Computed example of a mutant assay.
Amino acid sequence: MTEGNFVDYVKIHAESGNGGKGSAHLHREKYITKGGPDGGDGGRGGHVIVRGNENLWTLVGFKFKKHFKAGHGAHGSKQRSTGADGADVYMDVPLGTVVKNAETNEVIFEITEHGEERILVEGGMGGRGNWHFKSSTNQTPRYAQPGVEGKEIDVILELKVLADVGLVGFPNAGKSTLLSVITSAKPKIADYEFTTLKPNLGIVQHRDYQSFVMADIPGIIEGAAEGKGLGHYFLRHIERNATLLFLIPADSKDIGNEYRILLDELRRYNPELLDKERLVAISKSDMLDDELKDEIRAELDKELDNVPYLFISSVAQQNITELKDRLWAMLNNEKVIE
């Protein structure tokens, strides 16, 4: 998937169908000139329905189609015939899509399961035909109900990436390189900040044909929780990850401080993110000798508060298998394979 095709935020307009009018028909036959009311009900207007589809990974389908209008219900007719319901319109979205009211920013619902269907806008009810209004004092009502008009709404579709592991780190920490090494994903890689502007997903192949999904998410900068840099654009994706992999480069000026800043940005955005399991990986560690590693270990033992850590190098393929083992064990509550 190219970066331009990853769309995770769109605004759309949805409009349901009008209900059909009830019929005020009076029964007539060859030898019955003054029959009673037999007008049927109008059909229901079509709904606009949001449906989860596990085969979709992006909202790119809404990039050029942003208006959805359901069909109108047919009018009732004679012999108490009910009009046909209006055609429903389905909007297929990837799992992890949040639907918000565009005016109030209130969350209407979330789609998290394949095949899950939620009515976004209900179609108008069909009007009742005149036979409903027949009574002992009004045996030939010559009126029926009109159909209820449909509704319309502007909504925002916001995708929160569904992945098992989310990569957390400052720009240019080596997240895209790591993803390209341990998955078949081909993210854009370059030696400057904010190379990744959209989340990249990759499937990590593990032992015995097992696998899990990893997401490389745009890098945090200090102040991201307030919307600086890519801000909320990136932070919302981390909410869906089961485990967070903090990636800090070995050439960082202060590894402990960098970890604290990353953690603080997550806390300020959503304190519940701190409840997720964490693993810290020191990337680019092929440039370290044993003495430097010992110094960093001493620092990490004080800063990380029992959070596990690992020295890795994506380029030199150091400890990549060990990293996958650790992540798999954390995702499945298993012991790490030594």
Score class of each variant (00 low, 15 high):
residue 181 V to G: 12
residue 170 F to G: 02
residue 335 K to L: 10
residue 333 N to E: 11
residue 176 S to F: 00
residue 208 D to N: 15
residue 263 L to N: 14
residue 272 E to R: 10
residue 103 E to G: 06
residue 190 A to N: 07
residue 172 N to A: 07
residue 136 S to M: 12
residue 216 D to P: 07
residue 1 M to T: 06
residue 212 F to R: 01
residue 131 W to I: 03
residue 296 I to N: 13
residue 105 N to Y: 09
residue 136 S to R: 08
residue 87 A to W: 01
residue 19 G to H: 07
residue 159 L to Y: 14
residue 164 D to C: 02
residue 26 L to A: 06
residue 4 G to T: 06
residue 70 A to H: 07
residue 338 E to T: 08
residue 152 E to H: 14
residue 3 E to F: 08
residue 114 H to S: 14
residue 234 F to V: 03
residue 172 N to G: 05
residue 331 L to V: 08
residue 150 G to M: 07
residue 160 K to G: 07
residue 242 A to I: 00
residue 338 E to P: 10
residue 162 L to Q: 15
residue 133 F to D: 05
residue 169 G to D: 05
residue 56 L to S: 10
residue 312 I to Q: 05
residue 282 I to H: 10
residue 42 G to D: 04
residue 164 D to L: 02
residue 298 A to R: 15
residue 43 G to A: 00
residue 182 I to L: 11
residue 263 L to K: 10
residue 146 P to A: 10
residue 142 R to H: 09
residue 113 E to R: 15
residue 283 S to K: 01
residue 136 S to Y: 03
residue 144 A to C: 13
residue 229 G to M: 04
residue 140 T to G: 09
residue 123 G to R: 06
residue 28 R to F: 14
residue 333 N to A: 05
residue 304 L to R: 09
residue 12 I to T: 05
residue 29 E to N: 12
residue 278 R to S: 09
residue 144 A to N: 12
residue 168 V to A: 08
residue 8 D to K: 12
residue 172 N to T: 05
residue 32 I to Q: 13
residue 147 G to Y: 00
residue 240 R to C: 02
residue 193 E to D: 12
residue 91 M to Y: 13
residue 163 A to S: 11
residue 80 R to N: 13
residue 212 F to T: 01
residue 111 I to S: 07
residue 97 T to A: 03
residue 75 H to I: 05
residue 6 F to N: 11
residue 60 V to G: 02
residue 36 G to K: 10
residue 316 A to M: 15
residue 239 E to V: 06
residue 39 G to N: 04
residue 88 D to P: 04
residue 69 K to D: 11
residue 6 F to W: 10
residue 142 R to T: 06
residue 254 D to P: 04
residue 336 V to F: 12
residue 55 N to E: 12
residue 304 L to F: 04
residue 70 A to F: 10
residue 102 A to L: 13
residue 9 Y to S: 14
residue 207 R to W: 11
residue 326 R to I: 02
residue 338 E to Y: 12
residue 119 I to R: 15
residue 13 H to N: 12
residue 334 E to L: 15
residue 293 K to V: 03
residue 290 D to T: 06
residue 336 V to C: 08
residue 69 K to I: 14
residue 135 S to V: 06
residue 323 L to K: 07
residue 218 P to S: 09
